[in-house]
């Protein structure tokens, strides 16, 4: 139940983000979610896109440093407290969240949380055991 995310190394200088993203826009790659971690010198741009392999190819062709990595997509109701419920489950199972970001589905009723855990397999097992909905790549692409 893992999905592929693209991580992109960017220098923290003006124009780097637009340069990278316009490559994807020109190739008609749709970004479903993104997050940017930054330090004073560099940043890591994380993307969920509709065509991971094509986006990877385009970026590596242009000499970007790109990594495909595994994350999980958790579907929750878009209501106050929904994220906390998930985090409690993780905390009780002693699973650490390396990072997370979120987006709201098109219908607006559900939200999707992207997670990276220190122990991915255990995280998936625990969430599924609690009846939490994990989405497949296809589901993320179409919702």
């Amino acid at each position: 139940m893992k999905i592929k995310q693209l991580s992109l190394f960017l220098e923290n200088t003006s124009g780097r983000l637009v340069d990278a993203l316009s490559l994807l826009g020109d190739a008609r790659i749709n970004i479903r979610a993104l997050s940017l971690s930054d330090t004073s010198d560099f940043g890591i741009l994380r993307l969920i896109v509709n065509d991971v392999d094509k986006a990877y190819q385009i970026l590596t062709d242009k000499h970007y440093t790109v990594l495909k990595s595994d994350v999980v997509a958790v579907e929750v109701e878009d209501r106050p407290g929904a994220l906390v419920d998930i985090l409690r489950i993780l905390k009780d199972a002693e699973i650490n969240v390396e990072y997370t970001y979120a987006f709201v589905e098109r219908g607006g009723e559900q939200a999707i949380l992207i997670f990276r855990f220190d122990d991915m397999e255990k995280g998936i097992r625990v969430l599924q055991g609690k009846g939490v909905t994990l989405l497949t790549a296809d589901q993320v692409r179409t919702r």
Binding site: Q5, S7, F9, S37, T39, D41, F42, I44, R46, T60, T65, V66, L67, S69, E98, Y99, R116
Partner: peptide
């Protein structure tokens, strides 16, 4: 230059490397 081999998906990994 951060090559594919040096790159990790986490900020702390890159900071540790640096």
């Amino acid at each position: 230059e951060v090559s594919q081999q040096l790159f990790t998906d986490e900020v702390k990994g890159l900071e540790t490397l640096r």
